[in-house]
C-alpha cells in the first residue's frame, strides 16, 4: 500500500511537472509567435502605407490628365452631354415583328449563290427573273 502510494505520487509528480513544463514552453512559444505576428503586422502596415503612397503618387491628377489627353479621345464635357436618368426618354420595348415564311426552295432547281449585301442592308424576299429568291 505504502509502495503503491509512493509510486503513484512519483508518477503523479512526474506527470504534473511534465505538464507544467509543457505548458510553460507552450506559453513561451505562443508569446514568441505573438511578438512575431505583431512585428509582421507592423511591417505589413508599413508596407501598405508605402504602397498607398506609391498608388497616390502614380495617380496624381496631372499625370492622369496627361495620360488621358495622350491616349483617350476625350474632350471637356459639354453641358448637353450631362443628363440625369429622369431626363432620359423612356424607351418602350420593340414590338414583336411577325416573320413571313419564305417559300420553300425547289430542290430540283439550281439557285444562284446569295449575293453579299452591305452591312446594315436588308435582304428582301423578292423573286428574280428565274424565280430565285434573293
Amino acid at each position: 500500500m505504502k509502495l503503491n502510494l509512493t509510486a503513484l505520487s512519483v508518477v503523479l509528480i512526474a506527470g504534473v511537472s511534465y505538464g507544467l513544463y509543457q505548458l510553460s514552453y507552450e506559453v513561451q512559444q505562443l508569446e514568441k509567435d505573438l511578438a512575431r505576428l505583431d512585428q509582421g503586422i507592423v511591417d505589413n502596415k508599413e508596407n501598405i502605407r508605402i504602397l498607398k503612397a506609391e498608388w497616390t503618387y502614380q495617380n496624381r491628377p496631372d499625370v492622369l490628365q496627361a495620360m488621358a489627353s495622350k491616349y483617350l479621345p476625350l474632350l471637356l464635357i459639354a453641358p448637353y452631354q450631362v443628363a440625369s436618368l429622369d431626363a432620359l426618354p423612356s424607351v418602350s420595348a420593340p414590338e414583336p415583328t411577325e416573320n413571313v415564311p419564305l417559300p420553300r426552295l425547289n430542290p430540283r432547281r439550281h439557285y444562284a449563290p446569295p449575293v453579299d449585301i452591305p452591312k446594315g442592308g436588308i435582304r428582301l424576299a423578292t423573286f428574280a427573273s428565274r424565280g430565285t429568291p434573293q
Binding site: D38, I41, V42, K45, E46, R49, I50, K52, A53, T56
Partner: peptide, 25 residues
Amino acid sequence: PVVAGTGVRAEIRDRNGVILATTLN
C-alpha cells in the same frame, strides 16, 4: 491589441480620402 506604428505621424487626407501627406520609413 496591436498598436502598430504608434508614434508615426498621422496622415492628411483630402475629402475623398486621397493621401496628401503620409510618413514613410
